[in-house]
Design a binder for these strands. Structure first.
Lengths: 125, 125
DNA sequence: TAATCATATTCCTATATCGGAATCTGTCAA
DNA sequence: TTGACAGATTCCGATATAGGAATATGATTA
């Protein structure tokens, strides 16, 4: 089995660096494709293909305006990502605390039982 | 050029559904590999390979404890993702407002196309 | 009508991938 | 020691990819 398709969900679509750059550029207001080509320095077909992927997963919206097509980031499609990442938020502080503790205890060679019973130290035989 | 390596950055590593499941499971406290095998119903080699990717980008930390190796999610590595997604936060409300406006004006013969580029009326000639 | 601009699609190819099966490494117990 | 357990690694194969080049579609203007 190969990797999941880039257009299978937001996570896969957003994995590509250039597509994130496109979303950044298109946040706020709509722009024609050519603006992206100039701003990102990519070939026009590349931009079109990236936009296709982004549109397939709902990350951008498109609207024709005469000759050009105006794209705009659909920010709400990014929310699932934001919320998933946010579920780890409460562990950030926790982890920083743990690292700090470890750093402090490296000063003193003394080992003492902590408040939390953690598994036996890595020991070698 | 193929897709960027899964272990090239957090975004690519996290694109895979099973790896997100692993991160969810390993948030909070450390667990041996076998717990993951049982919890996710994946083959052991698959789990090991996913863990390898996650470790390469710093999303998990490993520690040997006797026969088993305990893994734990390194939540802080998820922050870049959270912060990138967060830059779009201010557009969510904005966009919801726009959608609402559009819905309200749908009573009247509103100009302005939908979310996809549709063929405009054949113009007169 | 033809010419031109703006964008999309198709064809091409090297490559990283995921899962499965088999195998290897390392640790503990008797 | 041997055996058993816990994980990691290697080999395999089908597949979706990203970029480049060439081409196609669609809209406007002369």
């Amino acid at each position: 089995m190969p990797r999941a398709a880039t257009s299978s969900d937001v996570f896969n679509a957003v994995a590509e660096h250039q597509r994130r750059a496109i979303l950044d550029f298109l946040a706020g207001d709509e722009r024609p494709v050519n603006d992206l080509v100039n701003a990102l320095g990519l070939a026009q077909p590349s931009v079109s293909k990236h936009l296709r992927v982004l549109r397939d997963v709902g990350l951008v919206r498109a609207r024709r305006d005469g000759r050009q097509i105006l794209y705009r980031t659909n920010a709400s499609a990014i929310r699932p990502l934001y919320e998933w990442a946010g579920t780890f938020e409460r562990f950030w502080g926790q982890q920083l605390r743990r690292i700090k503790e470890r750093a402090e205890s490296s000063h003193r060679p003394a080992r003492e039982g902590g408040d939390r019973p953690h598994k036996p130290e890595k020991h070698k035989h």
